[in-house]
Amino acid sequence: MLKKITLKTVLITAVLAASATAGGHTEIEQRIGAMKAVVGEMRILGGMAQGKVDYDNLAALSALETMRNAVATAQPLFGTPPVDGEETRAMAAIWEDGSEFDAGITTLLAALDTAIAAEPADLASFGPLFGAVAGTCKACHENYRAPEE
């Protein structure tokens, strides 16, 4: 029995370790992967906020939690500036402005924590919580992300 549990733990740890690098090998590829995961959850949440999809409180909560994990994964991956030639839309201002960009991510995490803790039961309570999360995206993308090529 004990052996089984240990095996299970080892397996889960291995899967987690693998998924942590699933976005790619370099730090930039990993953080692009994490940010893409954020957008994926935003699509689920945004569809509900827009009324395109019926509100589902369990699905919303799960999307918020997944998004929180993805944001928390991305945050430390913005540690070093890209070297020339690396494909990224992250602008140099991220590293020139010191901790301002990092504070932006922390604001997003706080908005997500608030939304998760509230466990919004219906669309009316979800709307403003989603708005607070969504509002933080533009704030960073204005100064820190270059337009697409």
Binding site: V39, M42, R43, G46, Q50, A134, C137, K138, A139, H141, E142, R145, A146, P147
Partner: peptide, 23 residues
């Protein structure tokens, strides 16, 4: 219209750069 109000594209990417001020 949703994009002009929130800055989100249909794919839920966000407006960036100078478009943020326009939004």
């Amino acid at each position: 219209v949703y994009y002009f109000e929130t800055g989100f594209t249909p794919e839920f990417d966000t407006a960036g750069s100078t478009m943020v001020a326009v939004i």
